[in-house]
């Protein structure tokens, strides 16, 4: 490998590393019962503290990388959801939280809903549950971050999340 190529590869690695370690999120409620919303908010509080994984909840879509979307997407919220998604700069990812955000869940077939976020915008990770526990949301987000990891590093996938106190990597696989 010649030098410029090596540099380029290193740069790409660096970008990926930064992206995985600093996913800023924005939260949009497209008509859920707000059960998922408070669980998302709960992941920021001392008990779960997503800041230890570099996740911050941002107010402006311009600053966000991950759109965390809940709810079955009502017709009114649809336009706003698309607009919020379009306002986000690339690269951007979408996480659909809650059963109703994936298929409509209990609201499936209601006259005013689009039955799921992926009917409106592309979704990268689905987190089922009604609502999912905050741990399950963290698990879903870590799934997303793992999927960003380049394939060659796939063997130490679980090493993405390092213990912020001891600096050690998990002994047991995530979600096994």
């Amino acid at each position: 490998m010649d030098l410029p190529k090596a540099w380029e590869a290193a740069l790409v690695d660096l970008k990926t590393w930064a992206r995985i370690n600093s996913p800023w999120a924005i939260h949009f409620n497209s008509g859920s019962c707000n059960g998922c919303d408070i669980e998302i908010l709960a992941t920021l509080t001392p008990r779960y503290d997503l800041e230890r994984l570099g996740i911050k909840l941002q107010g402006s879509p311009r600053h966000a990388d991950v759109l965390i979307c809940t709810g079955p997407v009502t017709r009114q919220a649809r336009e706003r959801l698309i607009r919020t998604y379009e306002q986000m700069p690339d690269p951007k990812f979408v996480v659909a939280v809650g059963s109703c955000g994936i298929t409509g869940g209990a609201f499936e077939g209601c006259y005013n809903v689009a039955n799921g976020v992926d009917k409106v915008i592309p979704v990268d990770v689905y987190i089922p549950g009604c609502p999912p526990r905050p741990e399950a949301i963290i698990f879903g987000v870590s799934q997303l971050l793992q999927s960003l990891q380049p394939p060659k590093k796939a063997k130490n996938r679980n090493a993405i999340v390092t213990n912020p106190i001891t600096g050690s990597t998990p002994k047991k696989g995530v979600g096994e």
């Binding site: 660096l14 970008k15 590393w17 930064a18 992206r19 370690n21 600093s22 800023w24 509080t45 001392p46 503290d49 800041e51 230890r52 570099g54 311009r62 990388d65 306002q87 700069p89 690339d90 690269p91 390092t162 912020p164 106190i165």
Partner: peptide, 25 residues
């Protein structure tokens, strides 16, 4: 002070590089 763990040591660096690598609208 808020009884949380808080960010990892490289957090500001990762934030900075990530923002640099992002699309500027």
């Amino acid at each position: 002070f808020q009884n949380r763990v808080g960010p990892r040591w490289f957090q500001p660096l990762a934030d900075f590089i990530k923002l640099l690598a992002k699309e500027e609208v």
